[in-house]
Amino acid sequence: MKHPKYILFATFDNFTKARDVVMELKVLDLREKIIDDIDLFSPIEHPDVEEMLGEIHQPIQRFTFFGAVTGALCSFLLVAAAAQSMFTVQPQGGKAVIPLPTDIVIAYEGTILFGVLCTLGAFLAYAGLPRRLSKHYNEKVSDDQIGIEVTTAKENIGAIKDVLNKFEPLEIREITQ
């Protein structure tokens, strides 16, 4: 049987504090291995703090590459096949069977279209969207506060709360999953 997970959600009013909290929690985790997951909720993108959370593997560009290549091939083949198909009905004697300039133009557009679509698909997958809002989500995060979400087991709540409280959070929410 799985142990129930506890989630602590604290909000802070600036990034410097949030960064220090994350650092402190990481140090705590190194010592005692009690934290399952730390996540940062913020109203703007903030690479400095995100780096502290550790590497998040998001190879979106590979999907882009895949989409672009597929798009180029598919649209080229579509036009080439359509041109051939037309040839059986309407021979265009003396003209190229597969008109290259045309195919390049259409393949160019197809590359971009499929590239964009695949990129966005990958974005949704890696960002974990669409999803329902977490129960503990604090609406202040979309305004001007920074939220830190810590997942842990019940017995460690006290230790983590101590760290969080050290940095004067605006609010701490506790949720059992």
């Binding site: 996540d39 940062l40 909720f41 913020s42 109203p43 703007i44 993108e45 903030h46 703090v49 995100e50 959370l53 998040i56 998001q58 979106i60 990958a122 974005f123 890696y126 960002a127 974990g128 969207l129 809002l133 977490s134 989500y137 995060v141 979309s142 939220g147």
Partner: peptide, 10 residues
């Protein structure tokens, strides 16, 4: 929700 992974992917 403005999670870190959302922002990075974004």
């Amino acid at each position: 929700m403005g999670r870190a992974r959302e922002w990075m992917a974004f």
